[in-house]
Design a protein around this nucleic acid. Structure first.
Length: 307
DNA sequence: TTCCAGGGGTAGA
DNA sequence: TCTACCCATGGA
């Protein structure tokens, strides 16, 4: 196993400003396998299966000099990567870190909010996502109606049982592909992976993809307007309003709010504390609080809640 | 034992 | 469109 320091990818343009560690940690995704966050060294690790079938370990850190940030990418692999593999990784890194998104409109609104102006100043808002929409859909389904700790456990078991292993450290595995999930014995889900009633949703989605009945990755091309994209996501069994809006955020559409128990709890406490408990605000009333954020409601809520 | 967690599907109105 | 009911899992 060789450690190949590719530092940095010269064509991987880092936006300014950009706070690598804060951006990675601004939601729970780095805690979900096969991601792992090393807080002490501010390093994001990920086991990744390449198109060639090779499994590599990525280690990402940022080197900062003033507002000039350079991404340091270390790749552990059994041999040198090919040019095509390097290009594949570069594309995946750009997607995962949302380096291509233009957040200037969001920053302009955030700068007008005293308590959120730091978000704009430090260049946050690029929430971590998986290289594939498939992985993000499965993980989002695993966040529904369970505690976060349970989500972490479910995803860990899914990766541990079905993901492709790293040669030098077989205990570390990549996220399972739709093919691997579709080919798995459903009994393995019932007995070991234990996603509860979500087992059927994940297996069904994998089969739809493998059989060519659904092309999730095509949705990343940003070819569909928001409402149609949302409708497409809602057509996935197990994806309801909350999950669809969460996935829209991951896809770079922030006009819909992922309304879950955490949203309701936060908004009630922050904006409706004077309302009697026996007459709670409706979801629509709570969502209206963020109308001022226009197309950036979800980020506005997210960073307000994260203060 | 019961409730709840970063809800969703279905049937019936 | 709205409501009631059911759904596996694991921790409190």
């Amino acid at each position: 196993m060789r450690e190949l320091l590719q530092a940095p990818y010269p064509s991987l343009v880092i936006p300014k400003p950009y706070d690598f560690a804060a951006s990675i940690c601004d939601h729970g995704w780095p805690m979900l396998a096969p991601f792992a966050w090393d807080a002490e060294h501010k390093t994001l690790q990920r086991v990744e299966l390449l198109d060639t079938g090779r499994v590599v370990l990525l280690r990402l850190t940022a080197q900062e000099e003033g507002d000039n940030v350079q991404l340091q990418v270390a790749v552990k692999a059994d041999q040198d990567l090919t040019v095509a593999e390097m290009q594949e990784l570069e594309g995946k890194l750009r997607w995962m870190l949302k380096l291509n998104e233009d957040l200037s409109e969001f920053y302009a609104i955030a700068a007008q909010h005293n308590r959120l102006s730091h978000v704009a100043a430090s260049g946050r808002g690029r929430l971590l996502r998986a290289p594939t929409l498939w992985e993000d859909v499965v993980k989002t389904i695993c966040t529904t109606n369970v505690s976060w700790r349970n989500t972490v456990s479910m995803v860990q078991r899914l990766v541990a049982r079905l993901g492709a292993p790293l040669v030098a450290d077989p205990a570390r595995r990549a996220f399972p592909t739709p093919q691997q999930v579709a080919a798995a014995d459903p009994a393995l889900f019932d007995k070991e992976i234990r996603l509860g009633y979500r087992n059927g949703y994940v297996i069904q989605l994998a089969r739809e993809i493998v059989e060519g009945r659904r092309d999730l990755e095509a949705l990343k091309q940003n070819a569909l307007p928001g409402p149609e994209l949302r409708q497409e996501l809602r057509s996935i069994k197990g994806v309801g309003d909350y999950a669809a809006n969460t996935l829209l955020v991951l896809l770079g559409h922030y006009h819909e709010l992922p309304v879950d128990s955490a949203f309701r709890s936060h908004v009630k406490m922050r904006h409706f504390a004077h309302i009697p408990a026996d007459a709670p605000p409706t979801d629509a009333e709570m969502a209206a609080v963020y109308d001022q954020w226009g197309a950036w409601k979800a980020l506005g809520y997210w960073f307000e809640a994260g203060e």
